[in-house]
Design a protein around this nucleic acid. Structure first.
Lengths: 250, 250
DNA sequence: TCCAGTTTCAATCAAAATCATTCACTTTCT
DNA sequence: AGAAAGTGAATGATTTTGATTGAAACTGGA
């Protein structure tokens, strides 16, 4: 086994368990104690591991902050994501905004050949490796909490873009329309709606009837709404009255 | 068997396995150890493989690509990164291009209050959480291998940007100037140089004397060069002759 | 607290693996 | 034929490895 190979496997084991004892590594990797010792020393020196007495601890990267949102996505959001992804066809250009529900949609694009335009750093991370996806990132001021690019740079970049569909999540929906918590975000999303032929809103049913700080647009700007089965009869009626195609993820 | 044929098959085997030992190659290819050795040396020199003791590692998008947690930077690159980070002062606006050495610089910005502009997805991931850093991402077509935004969208976005310093890595440096492997990348980097007052190039000493496909700019466009201590006497002289401040990371 | 027993560590060394270099031989092209 | 380039084997140098050793750091009981 090659040196780098061995060190990679040490890192992998360390990453999966968080902490790993030297003896355990000797057993699993199959090298001598001395060698493992030297490897740990090296990996500590280059800052990949923290050497401790009797073993080593993995140093998590700060960017894992995004990753653990994956686990926190509820089953509903996943179902909504899968259902919404079915609406997207190979060969299209699709716009994705930030938001955890939208992110779930990108997880289910597997295999589709797409041109994806997004201002969401987590979404970009998810898609950048995929060989069949051409990824265009909308630059701008990156909002620290959510990793979404916003502001005038983003709006300007959007003016040069046109897409078949926009997949968007919102903070709240009332009869007055869609809402979000941040006015910069709303400004960017408005421009996204301009740039897309069809607007698909993904939202869990808890968002219905809930309003937030900034008003985004009236309901009839939405073409399709993907929501979980918790939607009330009344809201089904309202949605239909506004000419929105209602898609329920079961 | 023809030379190129043999080298192709080496690459193929390396790609499929990620790592490959020299002995394994001797067995599978059927050439002598010396020949394989020479082939690996060649393939390393032209940047298709990374030669390691006992074998070689494939360079490319066989894995998820740029996932920086897995690809460990060498000690040299870390030292260069730390040294270059010292050149940056709180309160400044700094441009970072893609590249693994540049990425190392961003790791050592801790504590500094900065406005950071970058087209590198890995760099953005690293910095997005930092409370004292205002992050502006330059959008564009995201190049899958490296996670760097390139192309006309990026160039356009750069036209609206001005920064105190640019930190840039390159593929090769000769007396004719700086080189990189990708002409789209070069185009973007040229615009970055336009947008910055001071150009800092970070490179390990192996890049010196090495040329690549696309010519970026002549040497005298560089203000400072941060390099490891492996730099030869001759290159020290050349660098100084072109009025570049040489900074050696020890 | 102290002590004895245990675990872990750093340093050292010889064996093994890998490497760079050299050289004789073959092939290819002029 | 003769030069140039490629190949494979042999050589000694270098690096890595695994075992050994005594020192240092922990542990639990008195």
């Amino acid at each position: 086994m090659l040196v780098d190979q061995r060190r990679d496997s040490i890192l992998e084991i360390a990453e999966s368990k968080g902490y790993i004892s030297l003896q355990q590594l000797v057993d699993e990797v199959g090298a001598s104690e001395s060698t493992i010792r030297r490897d740990l020393e090296y990996l500590d020196r280059i800052g990949q591991l923290k050497r401790t007495r009797g073993g080593a601890a993995y140093i998590g990267d700060s960017l894992t902050g995004f990753d653990d949102r994956r686990s926190r996505a509820t089953e509903e959001k996943q179902r909504i994501g899968r259902k919404a992804a079915e609406l997207i066809e190979s060969g299209e250009t699709v716009l994705f905004d930030g938001g955890t529900t939208t992110l779930e949609v990108t997880r289910y694009l597997n295999g589709k050949t797409l041109q994806v335009v997004t201002n969401s750093l987590p979404a970009a991370n998810l898609l950048v490796g995929a060989s069949n996806i051409e990824l265009i990132f909308l630059g701008g001021y990156v909002y620290p909490k959510t990793g979404v690019a916003l502001g005038s740079l983003t709006v300007e970049a959007l003016k040069g873009v046109h897409a078949r569909r926009l997949v968007m999540s919102v903070g709240g929906i009332t009869e007055a329309g869609l809402f979000n918590s941040n006015s910069l975000l709303v400004e960017t999303e408005r421009q996204m709606m301009e740039a897309a032929d069809e607007v698909i809103v993904v939202a869990d049913s808890g968002k219905l009837g809930h309003s937030e700080l900034a008003h985004l647009c009236p309901l009839d700007r939405v073409d399709r709404l993907v929501v979980d089965s918790g939607i009330t009869e009344e809201w089904r009626r309202i949605v239909k009255e506004h000419g929105i195609e209602l898609i329920i993820a079961t």
